[in-house]
Design a protein around this nucleic acid. Structure first.
Lengths: 125, 125
DNA sequence: AGGTTGCATAGAAGAACGTCAATGCAAGCC
DNA sequence: GGCTTGCATTGACGTTCTTCTATGCAACCT
């Protein structure tokens, strides 16, 4: 019943703000778009990179701090950062010698909204 | 400073309830565990399957309804359902001839919590 | 200008993934 | 029992991903 009413609102309205995965079956296009984002998060190195950037007080981290935190080659870290950037999860800027990365919270929040189930959506915490 | 205090609380406390990716840099084990979950969501077919199951009023869907919704072979759908189940996102039960799937909301909510950035964590909506 | 350092890009190799046809197995039906 | 139907499993194949070494480019430092 309330479900029916929601669907009457139309797909656009739901997409625009807060359509969760439980509000209606995903169409193929939207599923493909969201899958790219989740795929970007589906690697432990990228999750750690994202977390290292997001948990930084100043909001920015120099690549020169990220690379030595892993037992991986520098090009590998650079590659993962590129994927995160292409997914719209982070962005970067070169300032002189060093390159700084920061998180784009909107993309993360959009994914968080998408994952929230109806039962949890009511609880503010 | 407040950052320091948070870390003094210990990783367990943060893990237990609501540690977001921005609360502290992820350790390797936790990153690996979370990456598996996100990887399970990183495919359009699996996202659509999950959405089809989650958006069902009764909470349960018969495989016989899921399979024909895709232009993919039956084993392929079965394979994706298995991955979702191994990730702890859904579960299933055989009842007579048919098999029914339903969503496990706890895993989804845990991921949603993880993705919420500090700035959005305050807003209840 | 020449050398050094920080990071990105290119290309290659091995592992992991998505898909299918073929098969297996359980449950219902004759 | 034998046949049919619903779904899972197996094994194979092409694609994508992760990682590396080698290289390129920009910025700094004499």
């Amino acid at each position: 019943m309330s479900k029916q009413e929601l669907e009457v609102l139309g797909q656009e309205a739901a997409d625009a703000c807060c359509a969760g995965l439980a509000s209606a079956p995903l169409d193929d296009d939207r599923a493909t778009e969201l899958a790219k984002l989740f795929k970007a998060l589906g690697d432990p190195v990228r999750l750690r990179l994202l977390s290292m950037i997001a948990s930084r007080d100043g909001g920015e981290v120099c690549v020169c701090e990220l690379t030595p935190a892993f037992e991986l080659s520098q090009p590998t870290i650079s590659h993962h950062l590129k994927l995160l950037r292409q997914a719209g999860l982070i962005d970067c800027e070169r300032r002189g010698t060093w390159v700084y990365y920061w998180v784009l919270p909107d993309t993360l929040d959009r994914l968080a909204q998408f994952l929230r189930t109806p039962q949890s959506a009511g609880a503010p915490a």
